[in-house]
C-alpha cells in the first residue's frame, strides 16, 4: 500500500459517518460472535444471544417501516406546506400551523397506542401512527422554509419572467430545502425510536429483542437490541448531518 493510499483509507476511517455505518454493519452481522461475551456477563442465562430473527432482517423491517412512513409523511407534509403558502390555500395556513404545533405535544408512544384500537395490531397501526406524527414537523418546517425565502428574491424572480413553477422549483424549494430537511430529520429521528416501541403493537422491528428480553427477564437480549437500535439511530442522524451540509453548501462558500 502506497503512503497516499494509506492516508486515503485512514481519512475515510476517521469519518464519523463511515465509522458509525461500519459499527452498525458489524452489530447486525457479527452479533452472534459476541455470544461468549454475553454468556460470561450473564452466566445464569440459558440463552445469552437473541436468535429469534436475524438482526439484519429486523433492521430491514425497521427501516422499511421508518422509510415508508417518512416518505409518505414527507410527500403529504411538503404538499400541505406548499398548499398553505400559495394564495389559494393561505386560508388554511393558521389551522395547519396550530395543528402541527398542538399535534407535536402528543407523545409519540401514546399516538402509537391509540392507533391500535383504531386499526388493530400489526404493522398497520405503526405505519399510520408514524406517518401521522412525522407529517407535523415536516409541514411546520416546510412552511417556515418557504416563508424564509426573502421577498426581494421572489420579486426579482418574477420580474425576470420566471414562471410560478420555475420559481417554486429553482428558487423557493432549493432555498427552503435545508429547513425542510431539518423537519424531515426530526421526523425520522422520532420514527426510528417509535418504530422500536412499535414491537409492542405487533410490528416486527429492532425493538423486538428488547421487548422479548424485558418480558422474559433476559437482559442480554435487551442490551443486544438496544445497541443495534442506538447504532441505527446514530447512523441516520449522521447521514442527515451529511445531507444538510450538501444542501447548504452555498451558505458556507
Amino acid at each position: 500500500m502506497t503512503g497516499r493510499r494509506f492516508w486515503q483509507v485512514f481519512g475515510l476511517l476517521a469519518d464519523r459517518l463511515v465509522l458509525a455505518v461500519l459499527a452498525l454493519v458489524l452489530l447486525l452481522y457479527g452479533m452472534p460472535l459476541l455470544k461468549p461475551f454475553f454468556a460470561a456477563l450473564y452466566p445464569t442465562l440459558d440463552r445469552p444471544m437473541y436468535e429469534g430473527d436475524g438482526f439484519a432482517a429486523l433492521a430491514a423491517d425497521h427501516m422499511a417501516l421508518v422509510g415508508l412512513s417518512s416518505l409518505a409523511a414527507a410527500a403529504a407534509g411538503v404538499l400541505a406546506g406548499l398548499a398553505v403558502t400559495r394564495p389559494w390555500g393561505a386560508e388554511f395556513r393558521g389551522l395547519v400551523e396550530a395543528l402541527a404545533t398542538a399535534g407535536q405535544t402528543f407523545p409519540p408512544v401514546a399516538v402509537l397506542a391509540v392507533a391500535v384500537p383504531a386499526v388493530g395490531f400489526g404493522a398497520a397501526p405503526a405505519l399510520i401512527a408514524l406517518t401521522l406524527y412525522a407529517v407535523l414537523p415536516i409541514v411546520q418546517n416546510t412552511i417556515a422554509g418557504l416563508e424564509g425565502v426573502p421577498a426581494p428574491v421572489l420579486e426579482s424572480a418574477r420580474g425576470m419572467g420566471m414562471r410560478p413553477a420555475a420559481i417554486l422549483l429553482r428558487v423557493e424549494l432549493p432555498l427552503a430545502a435545508p429547513v425542510i430537511l431539518a423537519g424531515l430529520r426530526t421526523a425520522v429521528a422520532i420514527n426510528v425510536g417509535t418504530a422500536a416501541i412499535a414491537s409492542t403493537v405487533g410490528a416486527k422491528t429492532l425493538g423486538l429483542p428488547i421487548i422479548v428480553g424485558l418480558n422474559g427477564a433476559n437482559p442480554a437480549y435487551v442490551i443486544q437490541g438496544a445497541l443495534v437500535v442506538a447504532a441505527l439511530a446514530v447512523v441516520v442522524d449522521l447521514g442527515f448531518d451529511r445531507l444538510a451540509l450538501l444542501l447548504s453548501r452555498w451558505q458556507r462558500a
Binding site: P150, P152, V153, E155, G159, G161, R163, V171, L175, W250
Partner: peptide
C-alpha cells in the same frame, strides 16, 4: 413572463438568488 424577459428589472434590495 415573455414580457418580463424583454425588460431588465433592478430593485433596491437587489434580490440576487443566494
Amino acid at each position: 413572463e415573455a414580457l418580463r424577459r424583454r425588460m431588465g428589472y433592478v430593485i433596491q434590495s437587489v434580490g440576487l438568488f443566494p
